[in-house]
Design a protein around this nucleic acid. Sequence first.
DNA 1: AGAATAGTGTCTATGAGACAGTATATG
DNA 2: CATATACTGTCTCATAGACACTATTCT
Lengths: 379, 379
Amino acid sequence: MYTTVKGSVALIGSFRQHYAQVLAAARVFQASGLTVTSPPLGPILDSDREFVRFASDPPGASDQDLQAATMEKIFAADLVFVVDPDGYIGRTTAYELGRVHERGMAVYYAEPPKDLPISVPPGTVLDARQLVQILGGNTPGPAPVRRPRVSAQPTADIVIFTIRSEQLQVLLVRRGKDPYRGRLALPGGFVRPGESLEDTAKRELREETGLSGPGIRLKQLHTYSRPDRDPRGRVVSTAFLAIVPDPPQVVGASDARDADWVEVEESLWGPNSSLAFDHGEILRHGLEHARTLLEHTTVATAFCEDLFTITDLRRVYEAVWGCELNPGNFHRKVVEETTGFVVRTGKVRRASRGKPPALFRQGPAELLHPPMMRSRRNP
Amino acid sequence: MYTTVKGSVALIGSFRQHYAQVLAAARVFQASGLTVTSPPLGPILDSDREFVRFASDPPGASDQDLQAATMEKIFAADLVFVVDPDGYIGRTTAYELGRVHERGMAVYYAEPPKDLPISVPPGTVLDARQLVQILGGNTPGPAPVRRPRVSAQPTADIVIFTIRSEQLQVLLVRRGKDPYRGRLALPGGFVRPGESLEDTAKRELREETGLSGPGIRLKQLHTYSRPDRDPRGRVVSTAFLAIVPDPPQVVGASDARDADWVEVEESLWGPNSSLAFDHGEILRHGLEHARTLLEHTTVATAFCEDLFTITDLRRVYEAVWGCELNPGNFHRKVVEETTGFVVRTGKVRRASRGKPPALFRQGPAELLHPPMMRSRRNP
DNA sequence: AGAATAGTGTCTATGAGACAGTATATG
DNA sequence: CATATACTGTCTCATAGACACTATTCT
């Protein structure tokens, strides 16, 4: 009986010479419950060509296109198994191995590779059945078990909220590439060498909105890691929340893609509302988080310009919480000296009719004690 | 006259067959002011071996060690020039190309590569002199193709709190391996194929404490991604918080390593308190998070057995918050019917002296409205 | 009986919310 | 002037906290 194992595996090797061994190993993996992301395991055409084609490959595609597609399928797997009878590794396989190593994926070999000076860690040369045993976690015997690890591409996605025309809006980009081409998504991107997730989020925010500097507060929310959340492979996304004042220029076009502010409720529940990947879920979490942040911290001032009136601030709360607040009570609570929420500047704004409102600036406090309570009667 | 250019370049190709061409190209680069990071350009020994050695290579090193050192030198360059007369690319060069591509470095080719199905962007096939021209800015050249990404090993680390002898304690393990061998660390481990971070955290919790099932609430806290936080490489850790009832057996020995409950304040501030990696920081965040969780949610019941008294529950709050609470007021607030925090079972506990306390069970509520306020006077 | 713990009653200070009233601008 | 907006005063109700008091057990 086979062990049942979760996960996915890609097989690489010279399909032209060793396809029988590839198929045999693939069958062992599939019988154990593993998904084989590459090769397709169908019949081979033109087995006399250097670079083999499968019946399932699109007929017009170039070798380069097919190889790029194969690379994506390899990267989508949790680990790579190299089928190299007698240690033979061809040129294309060597190239694939280079990319896979550089990505830090787990690699196992059927035989010790010959004529390629790479380091093969102990315990990574084994046959398909032994690999399944290790993956299942029940290897009897003394063999030093190296637990398979997953490597992933970390990304930072940002929920950027602003308030425009008294509505809470979120910045979304329209994807120019597959997967999810044409769908709306949160701005974000891959972590680059030397960056922390926070650095990446800051960079993306600057690229998308032009905003940067110490005034911008970025808050880490949650990390999304479902193995199948991105069809390109293991992509682990950490979501950040940014809250920015009214009309930062939309710089979207810089990245050759559309970016635009969208009303939040509409983007979540309206028609055409389904976002790419799990970004709908991330946005919902971000909204809920922003609401509680406004209760417990002074971030609401980050939605406002440098100088703002108490009514400006109240409109922020009303937009985010989606309810009306009593102007008088709000005023009294916020202006309270002891909290450090806002500080009076002495200036007034002379614009509209009515008594000219006093202008305030952000106070020193970060946390609100006691919090602004959102009554459970106006959800 | 040569153009003068700043920067560095690595040359790759079959040194055994085409070393003359490599040297010629290198001389062009050096004459233009470029640094050549690889190869060393000295005399070759053993030119009959498949994998060539330079006179400057340490004599005892293995092929694998030399190749790893070469990789580092290639990565240190600003761009890579492939010396491939007649388009010939050997196995080792194909491997290097894979790693270099995956890193997103700029690559140029002396000839269009043959027998390797990779895409060669237009304008990247040129000789050394033309490349120098492009780098000097005299001729517009193609931009570097891809942005380098990072790949990382995701891990889940768990802050497991319990209350023993009226103290808040945390489960720590003593590391058996370098780095930080012998230091205390949070339990945790690498994500395995098919797992989400939550799956990994659940598995680690089960392995360390034997606890599992729907009663255990695991809460994701924060993701730590500083590039240098783990000397082994890019390890991105997501921290989880678990809160468990009194004396779960410590199963630490199962994993051939020590595991033990440690009083929290001592582990943070006492002697021998410095934890491995950034786990001290993670533990501090976890403690702060647990404190606010107790304010806003009903998790405190998770510290207790199935049936508990109001005094048991109060001791949980006192241990986590590190302060004393008024027994009478606490009782009244918690037992309030409307909150759904606890439900009366009708039973009483007959154990100690004094009036036998009523036994309660966890109520249906997850969130507390209004929250249990921790006064800012007893921090 | 006395000690110890559980649970309740009651008073006070504080703050949220409702709403009326005052201040000061524009048209 | 009317009107709109900003701000303040005041009343009510809910609740946190302090603390005394009652209830029920064990020794």
